[in-house]
Design a protein around this nucleic acid. Structure first.
Length: 314
DNA sequence: ATCCCGCTAG
DNA sequence: CTAGCGGGAT
């Protein structure tokens, strides 16, 4: 049995306070207006590592383009990845995952959505968080979601130690049985509007002030979130530029692509053809690009190597 | 600079 | 277990 942190004695009061706070007033997001798993999955995948405010327009446009899971399953991968980049949604691996998930629903599940978190985790790109979120919001059948918001709330309110196992066990203990839909919405809303990095306890009327350890002692430290290396000049930035550029051209040769993603591209320089080929091969391994040799053997580069053409993968 | 409703692959 | 993955907003 995994450790569960000490929680207040009156758990029913703690639960009721949060649910009533949420139901009295909360942000309106369109995906909270449906119980259809497809638009909910789209919103959850888009929301990973991306602010909700930037997801709204993209979510509507995505569903406008691919209104059903069957429509998405039939789409070209290149169009889905292109959409992702056009809407600046980041991590375009997630576009691939979403597309692959749609294919799985249609082909492996015969169009029938799993309704349990375990079943949903079979879908590509759906881990513990997303599985519980979709099971909750679509089917009211999830366990507690544990994301950085929930961790921060539990860490502050109930002094839960910074340990994933304890967070999960404690979050699960707190969840009122059979109410995962409203509960998971409510606790993430709390983390989003009242208990963010900068706490807004009184302004947001936090319903847990009476029990909150941080509020009592005035220490609003949050669990450490692993900091990312700087994006500027990173490999990630250049991967993004490659995908964005290929969204504008059907197919490009390496030496035509290179100058479009970095001004200092020189075929034989430090960041030249060899460097770009490595980047492109990784993107191809990730299933985002197609790389092929130019069939025309007269097209060879200065070193006599066969020319390589890259495109977004269909 | 830091943050943002994580996940997959190794 | 850790490394790697985009990019806009603040």
């Amino acid at each position: 049995m995994t450790d569960v942190a000490d929680l207040p004695d009156d758990l029913p009061a703690v639960r009721t306070a949060l649910i009533e706070w949420y139901e009295a007033d909360h942000r309106e997001f369109p995906w909270r207006e449906t119980t259809d798993p497809y638009p909910i999955l789209v919103s959850e995948i888009m929301s990973q590592q991306t602010q909700l405010g930037r997801v709204e327009e993209a979510w509507a446009a995505f569903l406008d383009t691919w209104p059903t899971v069957a429509a998405l399953a039939e789409a070209d991968r290149a169009d889905v990845v292109g959409f992702w980049t056009d809407h600046s949604l980041g991590y375009n691996n997630r576009a691939k995952y979403l597309h692959e998930s749609a294919r799985q629903i249609v082909e492996e599940f015969d169009g029938e959505w799993p309704t349990s978190p375990e079943g949903l985790q079979e879908l590509m790109g759906v881990g513990p968080y997303t599985a519980n979120a979709v099971a909750s919001f679509a089917f009211d059948n999830g366990d507690a979601v544990v994301d950085t918001n929930v961790k921060r709330v539990l860490y502050r309110a109930f002094d839960v130690p910074d340990d994933d196992g304890v967070f999960e066990a404690t979050a699960s203990e707190l969840l009122p049985a059979g109410e995962s839909r409203v509960w998971n919405n409510a606790i993430m809303e709390l983390g989003g509007v009242a208990c963010g990095k900068t706490p807004r306890c009184d302004e947001a009327g936090c319903p847990w002030r009476a029990w909150c350890h941080a509020y009592e002692v005035g220490d609003f430290t949050a669990p450490d979130v692993p900091t990312q290396p700087s994006f500027e000049g990173s490999r990630r930035q250049f991967r993004g530029r490659v995908v964005r550029t290929l969204g504008e051209y059907d197919e490009l040769a390496l030496d035509d692509l290179g100058p479009r993603i970095r001004v200092d591209y020189a075929p034989d320089g430090e960041y030249g053809r060899e460097w770009l080929r490595g980047l492109v091969d990784d993107l191809a391994d990730d299933g985002l690009l197609a790389v092929r040799a130019d069939g025309d053997s007269s097209e060879r580069d200065a070193d006599g190597d066969e020319r390589v053409l890259v495109s977004l993968r269909r």
